[in-house]
Nucleic acid binder design. Structure first.
Length: 511
RNA sequence: GGUGGUAUCGUCUAGUGGCCCAGGACGCUGGCCUCUCACGCCGGAAACCGGGGUUCGACUCCCCGUACCACUACCA
C-alpha cells in the first residue's frame, strides 16, 4: 500500500519569499490536494546569521493571499512538531550522536581558515576519502587528543563519512534515475560549531523522516545534493522509507542568464515577490504582485504554467482545475524564463472575467486616493463605469487612468486630438449638438445614438469629426468606450455641461 | 576547473518512432469591426543546437561535440 501523501514546503526566513519559492509551494500544494494529502509548512531557520525578522510572517501572508493552504505548520499545529527547526535542536543532537556512534560520521576540528588554506593549496579540494587523512579530525587524531580538544572547548563540526566509489542512485519523478559516484560527494558538514545547529542537509533528512514526508518536491538547485541525502537516509537506516524526490526546473531571468534573483525585479521593472516587502534593515522596498494590482488567481495560473502544462490547449485554470489536472508527467525538465508580458495577459484575462460589481468594490478605494468623493456616486454607477473599461486594462491600478472621466470632468484636452478634430467651425457644431441632446427624452444608449446619428446624417455632417469632438469634450481625449454608453451613464445634464465646458476651453491648435 | 542536469518559434510549451514540410499561447504583425482607444474576430511571419549512428522511417532512441543552467560554504 502506498503511504499517505505528505509534502512540505520548507523555506528559510532569510527575506521575502520569492516567486520561484511560491511556485515550489504551489506545486507541493497541488500535489497534496490532488492526493488528499497533507501540506506541511516547515520553517528552516538553521542559519542564525541570515535570520530576518518579519520573513516568517511574510511567508504566511503570501501563501494565504495566493490561496495555498497549509495543513500543518507553526501556526496550524500538527502532530509532527515543532515545525520550526530552531526548536528542534535536541532532536538533531540525538540523531547526530547516532551517526557518530555508528561510525557514519566523524568530528572535525579544522577551522574555516585552515579549510580556506587547503582550498587555495590544492586544486579542486574537497573534504573526502582522499583528503580527510591530512586534516584534523577524529579519524586522524588519537582518541585521547580528540577528547582533550573537546574538553578544552575547541570548536568542531560533525561531518558525514562518505564511502568512496559507490554508485548512488537518485530516483526523481521528473528526471528519472540520476546516478552519481560517491567519490565526488564530499564529507559535508552535518552539524555546525558556529551556532550549535545542524546544516540543512541533516535537519532536512531528519525532519522529512520524522514528519513522514512522502514526496520531497523542491527546486532543481537541490539536485546536486540529492545523492548526499540518499546517503544520509542509508546511514540512518531509513532507506526503505525514503521519500520520492521531485526536482522542479528553475525560474530563469527573462533576459540574459541565470536563475531569477531577488534583484531582477527592480532591475527589469516587474515584481519578483508576491507581496511588497519592506526590508527591516536597509529600509528598501521591493514591489509585490499584490500591490501591483495582480489578482491572486492570475498569479497562481501563470506560475502553474511555468514548468507544467496540461497537455491540452487550455490556458486558464482555476485552482480546482489545477488540482485535478496537475501531474509530474507533464512537468518540464527545462528551466523557464520568466515572461512578464504573459503574466500581464493572465491578469487581463482574470480581470475581464471578473464580476463588475466585485471589481468595482476593489476599485472604489482608489477614488479617494485621487481626491474623488466616492459617496457622490452610486455603487451601480461605479460598477457600470468599471464594466465599460475593464476590457482595455491589465491591472486594477489601470482603472483610474482609463475611467477617471466618469468621476471628474476633463480639465485638459489632448493636444494631438484637438489638432485632428477641433476645427474652426467645431464650436458651432457643438452648440447645435447640445440642442439636439436637449431634445432627447430617453438617454438610453441606443436611442440617443439613433437620434444623434440621424441628425448628423440629415445635416450631412462629418461623422468622425462630430463624434470625436463630442468625445473630446466629455472624455478629454479620443479614446474610451462607446460614446452613447458613456452618455447614458453620465446623464443628459452632465453631458451637456461638459460640451459647454469644452466649447469654452478648447482652443484650436494653430500652426 | 570538477560533478550533475537540460537542449522545439523571441518567450512559455505540445510532440513518448510514421498522425509533424511540427500544434497552441504570449509578444510582434496584416485585415475586419468602429465615433476613438481598446476588446473581439479572421489571417501572417517565426523553431526541431551541430555531427555521427540505430531504424524501412527520427523532433522523438543511442553516442560525441557544443551551448545553457545548477551545484561545488560551519547558506539554504
Amino acid at each position: 500500500m502506498d503511504k499517505k501523501v505528505r509534502v512540505r514546503f520548507a523555506p528559510s526566513p532569510t527575506g521575502p519569499l520569492h516567486i520561484g519559492g511560491v511556485r515550489t509551494a504551489l506545486f507541493n500544494y497541488l500535489f497534496a490536494r490532488q492526493n488528499d494529502g497533507v501540506m506541511i509548512l516547515r520553517i528552516e531557520d538553521t542559519d542564525s546569521n541570515r535570520f530576518v525578522p518579519g520573513a516568517e510572517d511574510y511567508i504566511n501572508e503570501a501563501l494565504q493571499w495566493l490561496g495555498i493552504g497549509i495543513d500543518e505548520g507553526v501556526r496550524e499545529g500538527g502532530n509532527y512538531g515543532p515545525y520550526k527547526q530552531s526548536e528542534r535542536r535536541d532532536i538533531y543532537r540525538k540523531y547526530v550522536k547516532q551517526l557518530l556512534d555508528d561510525g557514519k560520521a566523524y568530528i572535525a576540528f579544522d577551522t574555516p581558515e585552515e579549510l580556506d588554506a587547503k582550498r587555495k593549496e590544492i586544486a579542486n579540494f574537497q573534504y573526502d576519502a582522499k583528503t580527510r587523512g591530512m586534516m584534523r579530525n577524529s579519524l586522524t587524531l588519537p582518541k585521547e587528543e580528540v577528547d582533550a580538544l573537546i574538553a578544552a572547548g575547541e570548536k568542531y563540526v560533525v561531518r558525514i563519512l562518505i564511502e568512496p566509489n559507490q554508485e548512488v542512485k537518485v530516483n526523481d519523478l521528473i528526471r528519472g534515475e540520476v546516478t552519481v559516484n560517491s567519490s565526488v560527494v564530499d564529507d559535508k558538514v552535518l552539524y555546525k560549531s558556529a551556532d550549535d545547529l545542524p546544516t540543512y542537509h541533516l535537519a532536512n533528512i531528519v525532519d522529512d523522516h520524522l514528519m513522514e514526508v512522502s514526496h520531497v518536491i523542491r527546486g532543481e538547485e537541490w539536485l546536486p545534493s540529492a545523492p548526499l541525502h540518499v546517503l544520509l537516509y542509508e546511514a540512518f537506516g531509513w532507506k526503505d522509507s525514503m521519500p520520492q524526490f521531485v526536482h522542479l526546473p528553475l525560474l530563469l531571468k527573462p533576459d540574459g542568464k541565470g536563475k531569477l534573483s531577488k534583484r531582477d525585479g527592480d532591475r527589469l521593472g516587474f515584481p519578483v515577490f508576491p507581496l511588497e516587502w519592506h526590508d527591516p534593515v536597509s529600509g528598501d522596498i521591493s514591489s509585490g504582485y499584490r500591490e501591483r494590482g495582480y489578482l491572486p488567481q492570475a498569479v497562481v495560473n501563470f506560475l502553474a504554467l511555468l514548468g507544467w502544462n496540461p497537455g491540452t490547449d487550455q490556458e486558464i485554470f482555476s485552482m480546482d482545475e489545477l488540482i485535478k489536472q496537475f501531474s509530474f508527467d507533464h512537468c518540464s525538465k527545462k528551466g523557464a524564463k520568466f515572461d512578464f508580458e504573459k503574466g500581464k495577459w493572465f491578469n487581463h484575462e482574470y480581470l475581464i472575467n471578473m464580476d463588475d460589481a466585485e471589481l468595482a468594490g476593489i476599485f472604489k478605494p482608489e477614488l479617494a486616493k485621487h481626491g474623488v468623493d466616492a459617496s457622490q456616486f452610486t455603487d451601480e454607477y461605479i460598477t457600470r463605469a468599471v464594466g465599460m473599461i475593464k476590457s482595455r486594462i491589465s491591472f486594477v491600478g489601470d482603472i483610474w487612468d482609463n475611467a477617471k472621466f466618469f468621476f471628474q470632468a476633463p480639465t485638459e484636452y489632448a493636444p494631438k486630438d484637438i489638432k485632428k478634430r477641433w476645427k474652426e467651425d467645431t464650436p458651432e457644431t457643438m452648440h447645435r449638438l447640445i440642442e439636439v441632446i436637449k431634445g432627447i427624452d430617453d438617454m438610453t444608449s441606443a436611442n440617443a445614438e439613433e437620434i444623434v446619428l440621424g441628425w448628423i446624417k440629415d445635416n450631412e455632417l462629418h461623422m468622425g469629426n462630430v463624434m470625436n469632438a463630442f468625445r473630446l469634450t466629455v472624455v478629454g481625449e479620443c479614446k474610451g468606450p462607446h460614446m452613447f454608453d458613456i452618455a447614458e451613464l453620465m446623464g443628459k445634464d452632465e453631458i451637456i455641461a461638459r460640451i459647454e465646458r469644452g466649447i469654452e476651453n478648447i482652443k484650436p491648435v494653430t500652426e
